[in-house]
Design a protein around this nucleic acid. Structure first.
Lengths: 370, 370
DNA sequence: ACGTTATCTGACAACGTTGCCAGATATCCA
DNA sequence: TGGATATCTGGCAACGTTGTCAGATAACGT
């Protein structure tokens, strides 16, 4: 069906080796011979068979990418970033082998198996490695020598690298901003204690609160599992409690959506009754009213850095004892949900050039220093 | 590094052929021999090399998936659906090879080349095949015999199948609902005339308007390129015109976001000043205030059907002269942006089971029949 | 006893590439 | 002139798998 080296060789009247040399552009080749071979390649529309090459080289040129939920824009951006990096090195060509776990631990564990079956050369892990899966990933590294790069989560030291946002700094800034608005009773929607970036974000919160002289007793802190449902449930409980918070800090975007939902269902108004800020940035956040105040960072950049690290891991001599940390900078994006108010409420973001988030950050609130 | 058939054969004291037979579970094998081989496989952690298999079989077991923008949840759901179908057939195992075009025609054309290089066995096309790329895809089919299944777009007849929503019926229902609210001056944000699903949606609109006895002169119709920016720009022009619309029908979700943006920027209120309805469903649409009235359909189902069609195309004897059409049902999801009003404004969607969109559809407006 | 069939196994040639070795000319320097 | 070197080419064995062929033994029916 498709032409092979042998077909080209026959058509050009040379040996297979010669054609291979022309294709790879190596060794000495007579100009006239090369001409004939190239003509034959052209005529037969020859394309090297990547499968045969991979077998010959004994490599798969495939990077595994385990993600929670590809329908979540965050993960989509990760993929775009990783893809961009991989495409930037034109030779050899790498594939991204994406497995979607849907937050199912069973599927996640299975994903580790699939990665070994496909003989990926490295794995980017953007999925909460639950304790049972963790062992599978550790085996992947120590037993099979496949480097793992984790997104936003410390796995225990066997990973080659970790890429994440400046979680602590970001949470600190975000919380500090809330404090500047004078809130004393703040509900903090934390992530699962087991995940390192949840802990980092909490640490940033604590730091800001401590600096402001807040005691822990006045605080409302509850851990959710990052989901809309948990954000909704917890916020709802708070608001229906005897001493509801006047502000809510969410550790991620989904829980924030749940919180907003709960607030509106209770007939309360943002930011008048309850102020809301959230880590992560919210897709379409500028379309919400009021505009959300969030802590944004470059999601694609994270994917890019992760891909860079995995490929680097393969070429570097030995593993280091310490995982490589890569931190992507964060940016406080001030909207209105925190209580900030802007003289001109006209939003020109869309018509103008540049990202709307960058533009948001430039604006100055008339009430606070933000 | 990794064990091969040869290693297992040596360990078990049998030939490579025998091991291969055990692995594939074919032919006669002595029970004791099988036992020994299985033990060796276990001990050496043997896994068949997929690359070698593919070379031997002369197939890649790979389906190409060309998409606009993986960070858009719509495409993410397509991928999940396609992946689900592919995983449902446990043998042989297929790969999904995803290429993100970012709506860049140059990248799209390049994607066609990449598909040939990787020797995919079929292609799902969820990207506007611009005229220049169209030829590349036609060649893929007629010259290389690679079946193409298109999402939501008629390519000219060479595609094996087309999967899309019930565009015309859906647009009809959505427009009819708007008309029932008594609007006479309606702005229709259409898609590019070149794309078949844009035409189908327009046709549904026309049908509803005609049945209601509307003349075309009262209508505002403008074609955008599906983007937030175009939705914003066009709506803005309409609202600043001398005879602004009292309602807007958007042919897709992104343009709808732009329209909402423009309306709010003009200081107008939805649905009091301008009612808004949109095709496609909007991710987090229930979180917007007012809740959007949209026409939803199962995005994952579309991906699933597309994968089914591509794999079917490979096994079916010959191409049919007519593309196979698969239509996924649509559902009118009534919110508040159309002007509907609900006695109880409490939204219990999140706490309850079942999709929030389904729940939305059940509610009854006190003013209209919707 | 024989031939026939069932059961079990190994050797070997592919699949499409590439790397190595060896051979054939042509060109160069001493 | 001779030997060394540069230039050019083909043959062949791999990579890890599978399918075919053929051989070996055992079990069977006549």
């Amino acid at each position: 069906m498709v032409a092979t080296l042998k077909d080209v060789a026959r058509a050009a009247g040379v040996s297979v080796s010669t054609v291979s040399r022309v294709v790879r552009d190596v060794d000495y080749i007579d100009a006239a011979t090369r001409r004939r071979v190239l003509d034959a390649i052209q005529a037969l529309q020859y394309r090297p068979n990547p499968v045969a090459r991979r077998l010959k080289y004994g490599r798969t040129y495939t990077i595994g990418f385990i993600i929670h939920d590809i329908s979540n824009p965050f993960y989509g951006h990760l993929v775009i970033g990783a893809d961009r990096y991989i495409s930037s090195i034109e030779s050899p060509e790498f594939d991204l082998f994406i497995v979607n776990t849907g937050r199912d631990p069973k599927k996640e564990k299975h994903a580790a198996e699939v990665m070994l079956d496909r003989r990926v050369e490295g794995v980017i892990l953007a999925s909460t490695a639950t304790s049972e899966c963790l062992e599978a990933f550790r085996e992947m590294v120590v037993q099979h020598g496949i480097p793992v790069v984790s997104i936003d989560n410390y796995l225990g030291g066997f990973e080659y690298g970790i890429v994440s946002a400046e979680n602590q700094v970001g949470a600190y800034q975000l919380m500090q901003h809330l404090i500047q608005h004078g809130h004393r009773r703040i509900g903090v929607l934390a992530g699962p204690e087991a995940e390192s970036h949840a802990r980092e974000r909490m640490e940033g919160c604590r730091q800001a609160l401590q600096e402001a002289g807040y005691t822990s007793e006045g605080m409302l802190i509850a851990a959710g599992n990052w989901s809309v449902e948990d954000g909704y449930r917890i916020t709802r409980e708070w608001l229906e409690g005897k001493w509801p918070p006047t502000a809510i800090f969410s550790s991620n975007n989904l829980m924030c959506m749940g919180a907003l939902y709960a607030i509106q269902e209770c007939g309360l108004c943002v930011p008048r009754d309850v102020a809301v800020v959230s880590f992560d940035g919210v897709e379409f956040g500028t379309f919400l009213r009021p505009i959300l105040t969030t802590l944004g960072y470059d999601w694609e950049r994270i994917g890019e850095e992760a891909a860079r690290l995995v490929l680097q891991a393969r070429t570097v001599a030995g593993y280091s004892d310490q995982p490589h940390y890569v931190r992507v900078p964060v940016q406080l994006l001030i909207g209105e949900s925190c209580g900030c108010h802007f003289a001109s409420n006209r939003r020109r973001d869309i018509g103008e050039k540049g990202s709307s988030s960058a533009r948001r950050a430039e604006r100055r609130c008339s009430k606070c220093e933000g």
